[in-house]
């Protein structure tokens, strides 16, 4: 089937629509998913097509949205629970960590929890300190569910369909500033991507940039600039923080011997820390330079756009970090 360029938003919408048409047990619940059509317009038209039973507006109750989705998933249906932004997932932290992640294990496999939490992440929109988090690494800390971080329309569609079809819980994190990005996506209702597989988004031999989402976008820009100086960066898009595809990272690192990790989350205890630790463990003899990390600054994000941008990763910061290691 032909590929066609669609936006990240369209990729999400079509993945949801196709999976809801395919399986009656799949339904959506969350704030403003129905009448409003989704705060990011991902579920526009869904209420009309699928009805109020399957497109369920909820009160502003994140603990109950996640907790009720867990209970429903345990009893034979497949909820997609939407948390408007990942900032509100903190309110639902207990339901995620102590219920969604645990009921299978602590009852010795009696229950499966086939659910997806869809949410959006990211700063850079002048929303101030409480609405600008990119805390995916926190959620990837806990075993019992997967964490998806798609960075292209292609990945968003294939990964969301895979998440809905899987019998494990998935926290599916979309980037709020990337909804208009376009890429070629197969026009195929059974297009699904494997869970836990990273992807080489650019080949190169001089340095490995490990990243995802906004970091991917900036790293591609940085790589084009670096190429003008004769530095060829290989870009590994993790796509999933859990399961973590460490093999693809190590394989690339053994080729380039240098690594920069780029992410939008905070610098302490983040993805970069994990990747750096694993590289020194699995590829110590291949290291030609310390692993560099580019992340947000270790401060809350402010409102004013000019200083907010200073705190976030940028192509310039990535270029500088690469030049430290090559």
């Amino acid at each position: 089937m032909a590929d066609r360029p669609i936006t990240y938003r369209e990729a999400l919408s079509s993945a949801l629509r196709e999976e809801m048409r395919r399986d009656e047990r799949v339904f959506i619940m969350g704030e403003e998913v129905g009448v409003w059509g989704g705060t990011y317009a991902v579920t526009r038209g869904f209420l009309e097509e699928f009805g109020a039973k399957r497109v369920r507006d909820t009160p502003i109750s994140e603990m109950a949205i996640v907790g009720a989705a867990v209970g429903a998933a345990m009893y034979g249906v497949r909820p997609i629970a939407e948390l408007m932004t990942i900032n509100f997932a903190f309110v639902a932290m207990d339901a995620i960590v102590n219920s969604m992640a645990k009921v299978r294990y602590m009852f010795n496999g009696q229950y499966t929890v086939p659910m997806v939490i869809r949410t959006t992440t990211g700063g850079g929109k002048q929303l101030g300190a409480t609405h600008s988090h990119a805390p995916e690494p926190i959620f990837a800390h806990f075993p019992g569910y997967y964490v998806a971080v798609p960075g292209t329309a292609y990945d968003a569609k294939g990964m969301l369909k895979a998440s809905i079809r899987d019998d494990n819980p998935v926290m599916f994190v979309e980037h709020s500033t990337m909804l208009q990005r376009r890429s070629e996506v197969p026009d195929d209702e059974d297009f699904v991507l494997p869970i836990g597989k990273g992807d080489i988004k650019r080949e190169g031999s001089d340095v490995t940039i490990v990243t995802y989402q906004k970091g991917l976008e900036y790293s591609l820009i940085a790589a084009d600039e670096l190429a003008k100086d004769g530095i060829e960066a290989e870009i590994v898009d993790l796509r999933w923080l859990r399961p973590l595809d460490i093999d693809i990272v190590i394989e690339s690192f053994k080729k380039t011997n240098r690594c920069v990790v780029v992410e939008e989350s905070l610098p302490m205890y983040n993805v970069g820390a994990e990747i750096a630790a694993q590289i020194q463990l699995h590829a110590f003899d291949y290291m030609d330079a310390p692993v560099q990390r580019v992340a947000a600054m270790d401060i809350p994000l402010p409102y004013a756009g000019k200083i907010e941008a200073m705190a976030l990763p940028s192509p310039e910061k990535i270029i500088a970090a690469v030049k430290e290691v090559v």
Partner: peptide, 24 residues
């Protein structure tokens, strides 16, 4: 469906089980 260790943590699960029953 279990005993649950976090105070109140099972209450939305109860709602969810009821939702699944109603849905089906």
């Amino acid at each position: 469906w279990g005993g649950y260790g976090i105070v109140g943590g099972h209450l939305p699960l109860a709602a969810g089980i009821a939702l699944a029953a109603q849905y089906q």
